[in-house]
Design a protein around this nucleic acid. Structure first.
Lengths: 202, 202
DNA sequence: AGTAGAATGTTGACGATGCTCACATTAGGG
DNA sequence: CCCTAATGTGAGCATCGTCAACATTCTACT
């Protein structure tokens, strides 16, 4: 398929080659650099070296572009979680995954905001699928770690906990002195929840 | 008919009287009506019956206006929590407050998003003060309910849990079939956390 | 091959927005 | 009673999202 982020040696063709992913790439770069969450379609096009109207050949909306960016974010989040531990089966390993979630949010705040801040969903299959994947992943972990009556409830609680922690940090409602301190806090909170439900129906 | 804020009997004075709060009021109305989170300064001015440049006499920025709106939101959230239970001292009462938090978010999604979605904080004293108040309120409850070693950690965990739940509902990551179901879910999750730390006796 | 037609990209334009300036109006204090 | 500061207005600039008309390139069919 695509030449794995094919190097762009020279603009051999006047047709950009792969504008859709070039746009998403440009958008991601801009998000990382500026920390700003408002992507302008024109800005992205500019960065990709095309005219302001070019993106409309590939994305119906500005929103569609943003959704595509968010989808990439979801995929990278998933990778990150998997990297924290490929298949957690103890509370400690689960806590590691939870910490990875929050750290992802702190390291790439703009992207994280894009992923969750927009109300839309119905329009983008990518996005829905991606969040579905995360949800299933989490539930799978919980089911594996705790053989209890209502894994969905626990999975939800943990996701919410971690998600809320991430946003509160992002919004400066909690101080984040150092990554280590954050990790500790996340671990403590996560294990508290685990302890609760583990005891409940075990 | 609206009662408290004078309908619009006659523009007695050409100077609007109290434009700052009129603007905030207009903004709040727009948020409730349209569910949209993007307030345009011009739109708010239009609704308040003034020219697009008028707001700048009272707010430095569009952001400053939004921050003022958010501050009102924080105050109303605080009222709502207090209404759920003025001074909770049992896990059940705490759960009621937690549920109120999530319900506030679901009932006034646009306002809730405004309150938390914007990265800003340094610029608006109102906002900082308001969130500080919520934070202290929560911590106070936790300290009263649980005489344990680290009330701050628990307070943080509960806030994050509730906050995350609210956002996941808002973003459609969790289904919210009925308010009752939401309340049940929130209660369950909250009590799980409470049970953990309550008897954890770290 | 050569050409028609679909893809893709560009220009130019429209309306809306945030924001600023110069100007008009009003409210109060000397 | 008028002068000054506070407040609101109007016009204007740069940017943005989006569209329609036009230009260029790629693909496929004969």
């Amino acid at each position: 398929m695509s030449t794995s982020t094919g190097p762009k040696p020279a603009k051999a063709t006047y047709h950009h080659g792969d504008l859709p992913s070039a746009l998403v790439g440009a958008a991601l770069e801009m998000l990382e650099e500026s920390g700003e969450t408002d992507l302008s379609l024109r800005g992205v096009a500019r960065r990709a070296g095309v005219s302001p109207a070019a993106p409309y050949r590939h994305y119906q909306d500005r929103e569609a572009l943003v959704s595509a960016v968010a989808a990439v974010g979801y995929r990278e989040l998933a990778e990150r979680l998997a990297a924290a531990h490929p298949s957690p089966s103890t509370p400690e390993e689960l806590a590691a995954v939870a910490t990875a979630y929050v750290q992802f949010a702190l390291e790439r705040p703009a992207l994280f905001r894009i992923m969750f801040s927009e109300p839309c969903d119905r329009d983008s299959d990518d996005r829905v699928a991606a969040t579905e994947a995360i949800s299933l992943y989490l539930r799978g972990i919980v089911e594996r770690v705790f053989a209890q009556a209502d894994p969905e409830a626990l999975a939800t609680a943990i996701w919410a906990l971690v998600h809320g922690l991430a946003f509160l940090y992002l919004d400066g409602k909690l101080d984040a002195p150092s990554p280590a301190a954050v990790a500790e806090r996340v671990t403590a909170a996560t294990e508290a929840v685990i302890a609760a439900t583990g005891r409940g129906s075990r």
